[in-house]
Design a binder for these strands. Structure first.
Lengths: 235, 235
DNA sequence: GTCACCTTTCGACGCCGGGCGAAATGTCGC
DNA sequence: GCGACATTTCGCCCGGCGTCGAAAGGTGAC
């Protein structure tokens, strides 16, 4: 995130992102799910022909990967480095243009819980980070020893995440809540475990996830257990 | 680096970077120094008129700041977030087009030591990270307790750097050495202290820095002192 | 005040690239 | 094999933007 490996010329890739249609496609793919060419044409508001041309250019520029499945072609972002470019760009970009009503209806569904590329965001993501902080598991952008034990016990590969090239455990402002939630390699690892365990399930709307009943029980047990030892029970 | 604060419209900013002339200007500014409009026109190979138009757009897009000084106008990147966008883009960009002879002559001067935006790179940056690792001051993308004491004693604000929104202490491949060096908030803080102490001095070529005699003595004393306690002296 | 220099503004030119509809290619279901 | 559907290819139009030279706006040196 901090340094260039060589003095690469940055313009061609930026040019790919610079077109509003392609930017909409890439932003849609930030949810981490692969989308078919037709879906991408719809979300970006262009004809299938136009979308196809754009996707060909994104593919040529190695910003997306494609997977053929029958008569569909599913496109996904070509790795988290690409997602990080988009996120870095978003961080210095102004507020978005007005959104359609359909989109704002879907937005409400995303408030409760959603993923951003590959980690948990939304109200659930904010709550998770709050619990980690309250319980003394997380401080100063890092896990405490207690936090490391807690998550390792849950099945999260903490040391693997720490060795990743990505930021380990950054806090980021949430889209809807205006509060911090957990991202980075650790956020992704946690989300992966929650999905594996069935504590979290992907929803119908792209990027949305729901906390299952089992997940609710599991998480409150997890944090309640610790809260007993630290003295301040929380429901 | 990991998450978008809101679903910002990323295309306009990308569009600013997408033009080769503006990209050359921004890349030149990655050295961290402010450059005059005329210099930027020269490094990007366009007329003063064209450069002026580009700089006006970059200014309008908040990618650069300007400082008037007499009849010159010095432009600089508008914060490290902008640098991080460029670096993230460079990471997924292909290799650069062939460079001019003049540039490759200057490149040799940069091999020994240089800064990348605000932290130490080049051979000296690689050597610094090597020493930190050998001495047990740095491991797994983080300072050890010993490293924290060592750098705090030198005057580096380690806790301040850890609280920063930037990655704390990422390793990155170096441009010339193909080896890792230290970046991020910690890399910047260290470089700042070295410059304050006069151990490092900015050179004539933009982005280049030289290790002063005093700096050479200071650093070897710093690491030699530790090496005595850890058992393996290094000259 | 006058000259020299750096920078910006103005006006005009050229071209690249995104847009679409229609037709071609490919794949599934029967 | 045939029709329905998803996707790509082709041909064409059009707007926006990067480019420059010339001239104007400011600033420092003397």
């Amino acid at each position: 995130m901090e340094h260039i490996a060589r003095d690469a010329d940055v313009a061609p890739v930026a040019s790919l992102i610079a077109d509003p249609t392609r930017a909409a496609m890439l932003t849609a793919l930030l949810g981490g799910r692969a989308l078919a060419a037709g879906e991408l044409a719809r979300v970006s508001g262009v004809s299938a022909a136009t979308a196809s041309a754009h996707l060909a250019r994104l593919l040529d520029g190695r910003l997306v990967d494609v997977e053929r499945q029958g008569r569909h072609r599913y496109y996904r972002l070509a790795g988290h480095e690409v997602a990080e470019v988009l996120e870095a760009l978003a961080r210095i970009s102004g507020r978005p243009p007005v959104r359609s009503l359909r989109q704002s209806r879907q937005a409400r569904l995303l408030e409760e819980a959603r993923t951003c590329y590959d980690h948990l965001a939304g109200r659930a993501g904010v709550a998770l980070l709050d619990r980690l902080k309250e319980g003394g598991y997380y401080a100063a952008h890092d896990l405490t020893d207690a936090g490391e034990r807690l998550l390792s016990g849950l099945g999260v590969d903490v040391t693997g995440a720490r060795g990743s090239r990505r930021r380990f455990a950054p806090e980021c402002l949430d889209w809807t809540e205006r509060r911090a939630h957990l991202g980075g390699a650790l956020g992704a690892a946690i989300t992966g475990v929650l999905l594996e365990r069935g504590w979290l399930r992907r929803g119908a709307v792209p990027r949305s996830v729901v906390l299952t009943d089992e997940g609710g029980r599991g998480l409150s047990a997890l944090f309640a257990g610790k809260e007993l030892t630290s003295g301040t029970p929380v429901t």
